[in-house]
Design a protein around this nucleic acid. Structure first.
Lengths: 146, 146
DNA sequence: ACTTTACTTAAAGCCGACTTCAACTTGCAC
DNA sequence: GTGCAAGTTGAAGTCGGCTTTAAGTAAAGT
């Protein structure tokens, strides 16, 4: 019964390249034991960490933030389901915000195309071609970027 | 009546830094005339191009793809509302796909946290802590990244 | 006229997230 | 016990999207 995985095995199971796994280790996101010959051996629990990392990335979280989150896991014991659930819930808000932002963008875009007012592209920023604005300071910024 | 904008004015109105505007020009996303002294002067219509670029970026489109899209605009005349609407509609599918992807992720995450099965983090990839899998090739990949 | 602010360029730098390279060592199969 | 795939390292490279720098020119206010 092999309790540990080589870097190649972990890469294969997680879909993450070995070079990326070494990179994650350098950043302190995952940990590995070593054989007598200095090769990495991963506990099976690391597979879950890697999964967590990839999911968080899809949510739009940076590796730095992911590291901070993972630092919240207990070191002494293998993380439980509750531990993971607690961490995951932290991204939900972020995910919801991101979805809301994109939905708003979509709706604006739909409205824009449908009504011909070009709300996003034109109205928010400048006047239509045939109505030059005076020199007063027009609107300057777009809504928050994500 | 000033029909053109200096780079600083365009930057101010669009919320995009002058350096970024010069960069966009190098990539062929926007165009500028020149004064006798070689300074850029932008037609007001360029403001709309810049808006389009920023919106497309928020949708997740790369500058290269944006350039390709903008190449679809008529060169001879100032683009009309219909021209812009046609381009914008091209991103809608992309935007919808992205939203759908994130919603799926959110729902999986919600289910995961609610039911304790850790569907995303654990089940999709490996067995729970107390059930070691055999050596057979487990699942390897995550769902498509956006 | 003069001063200040805005603009010009090419080239280099930066950031995040990796990948690639080169030179070398381990570990497993036969 | 040998051959070869798989692993090791630090350093450098890549890519997208800009920003910064340096050295100089133009335009605008007074």
């Amino acid at each position: 019964m092999q309790q540990t995985l080589s870097i190649g095995e972990l890469a294969h199971r997680s879909g993450v390249a070995p070079s990326a796994l070494r990179y994650y280790e350098r950043l302190g996101l995952i940990r590995a034991g070593r054989t007598g010959g200095n090769q990495r051996r991963y506990d099976r629990a690391e597979l879950r960490r890697v999964s967590f990392i990839r999911i968080a990335q899809q949510v739009g979280v940076s590796l730095d933030e992911i590291r901070d989150a993972l630092d919240g896991l207990p070191e002494s014991r293998t993380p439980t389901k509750a531990d993971w659930a607690r961490l995951s819930s932290r991204w939900q808000t972020k995910l919801n915000d991101r979805i809301a932002f994109l939905e708003r963008l979509r709706d604006d875009l739909t409205g824009c195309i449908g009504c011909g007012c070009l709300s996003l592209i034109a109205c928010r920023l400048s006047n239509p071609d045939d109505e030059l604005s005076d020199d007063g300071p027009g609107p300057r910024r777009f809504p928050a970027l994500s």
